[in-house]
Design a binder for these strands. Structure first.
Lengths: 189, 189
DNA sequence: GGGTGTGAAACTCTTCACAGCG
DNA sequence: CGCTGTGAAGAGTTTCACACCC
C-alpha cells in the first residue's frame, strides 16, 4: 500500500486516503498509528517514507530475519520465489526436502538440503522463522524437528492442526478456510 | 480438525476438546456453535458427524462450488494441487494463463485456457469464485476481467491492493503479512 | 484550513457462572 | 453427573467529536 504511494512520488498521506486504500476507517487508522507514537503532522498527514520506516521498526523488520523453507514442492517453490517477501529484509537462507533427487539443487537462489541436516543448518544460518510446506502427513514430524532445533516461530501451510509447545508460535495459513469464508459470504449475500 | 476426530473413530466431542484443538476457549466454541442452532447434547457433547454436516451447510459447502484459477505459475499450480480444497465440495473447473505455451495443457486435471476466453468459459462452467495467482502487475487487469464476467467473490494472492466494486468481495492472502506478524511476535516475546 | 491525536460514548466481543437437560 | 446453552458482567474495540497544532 505504502509502496504504491512511494512509487507515485507521493510524500505525504492522510488517514482518509489510507482508509480508502486499506478498508479500515480513518479514525481507526489514526488510533492504531498513534498507539505506537506520533508519526503524523497536523494539517498535512503522515510521511510515506517515515511511516514505512516506523512500521518496519515496529514489526522488527528493520533488522534482517532469516527464513527457512521446509518442503520444496510446488507450494514451497512458489513461496521461495514469492515477490512479497523480498520487499522486507526477511530472506530465505536455506531450504529442506526429503526427496533425495532435489538435494543439492537451487530454487530461487536457495540451496535445497536434506531434512536430516536441519538442526545443524538452522543454527548455522541463524534461522528464527521456518515455513512448513510439506504434505499434511509429514507436517507434525517437521514441526517437532523444528522445535527441537530451537525455532520459536513457524508458518504452517499444511492443512492440519499441529501440536506445539506454548512458547512456540504456530501461524496457520489454511487456504481452504479462505475459500470457505468467501463461499459463506456468497451464500449470505 | 473434525476430520482428525472422525478418522480416530470418535463420534462425540466436547467443547473442552474442541477448545484444545482449535485454540479458542470452550465457552467461545459453545457460543459460536449455539449462534447457528442447537447442535450439542447436554452431558455428551457434539456429534462429530453432525457438526461437520451442520458447518458444511452453514458455509454453503453442501452444494458444489465451482472455482477458477487465474495464473498457472508455481503458485497457481500449487493451489490447483492443494489437498485442502478437495475435502469440500468445491472444485476447480477451469484455469487460465496468458502464456501461450501453457494453453491446452492440463494441471491437476484442470485444463489451462487463454485469458481471452475467460468471460465465456466462466459463464459456461458456472464459476462463482475465482482465485488470482498472477504477478502483481497484472492482478488489477485480471480482477477487472473477472468482475466484467460477473464474478462476485475473488481470492487474491498477488501482493497488491486491488480496487473492486462494492458488491464484489475480494479476500487478500498476503503471505508477507503472515511473516510480518510472526516477526513482530518474535520481537515482542 | 486541514488533518492529527485523543477523551468519552457506543458498541461488540469474550468470559464467567450456572440453570437445565440428557 | 457432565456438558450444553445462555443471561449477565466484564473487557476490549470502534466510532464520534473536537481540541490543538502545522
Amino acid at each position: 500500500m505504502l509502496d504504491i504511494e512511494a512509487a507515485q512520488g507521493t510524500t505525504d498521506i492522510s488517514s482518509a486516503r489510507l482508509s480508502r486504500l486499506s478498508g479500515f476507517s480513518a479514525p481507526q487508522v489514526r488510533r492504531d498509528l498513534a498507539y505506537f507514537g506520533s508519526f503524523g503532522k497536523r494539517g498535512v498527514g503522515y510521511s510515506v517514507r517515515g511511516l514505512r520506516d516506523a512500521i518496519g521498526t515496529i514489526l522488527g523488520m528493520d533488522q534482517p530475519m532469516n527464513l527457512a523453507m521446509v518442503g520444496v514442492g510446488n507450494l514451497g517453490r512458489a513461496l521461495l520465489a514469492y515477490r512479497g517477501f523480498a520487499r522486507q529484509d526477511s530472506q530465505f537462507v536455506v531450504a529442506f526436502d526429503a526427496d533425495a533427487r532435489k538435494i543439492g539443487s537451487t530454487v530461487a537462489g536457495v540451496s535445497v538440503e536434506p531434512v536430516g541436516k536441519m538442526g545443524r543448518l538452522l543454527r548455522e544460518h541463524d534461522v528464527r522463522l521456518a515455513i512448513i510446506a510439506v504434505p499434511a502427513t509429514q507436517a507434525q514430524d517437521v514441526l517437532d524437528d523444528l522445535v527441537g532445533a530451537g525455532i520459536k516461530a513457524i508458518l504452517n501451510f499444511a492443512p492440519r492442526v499441529l501440536e506445539a509447545p506454548d512458547d512456540v508460535m504456530v501461524s496457520n495459513v489454511d487456504l481452504a478456510v479462505e475459500v470457505e469464508y468467501l463461499s459463506y459470504s456468497l451464500a449470505n449475500r
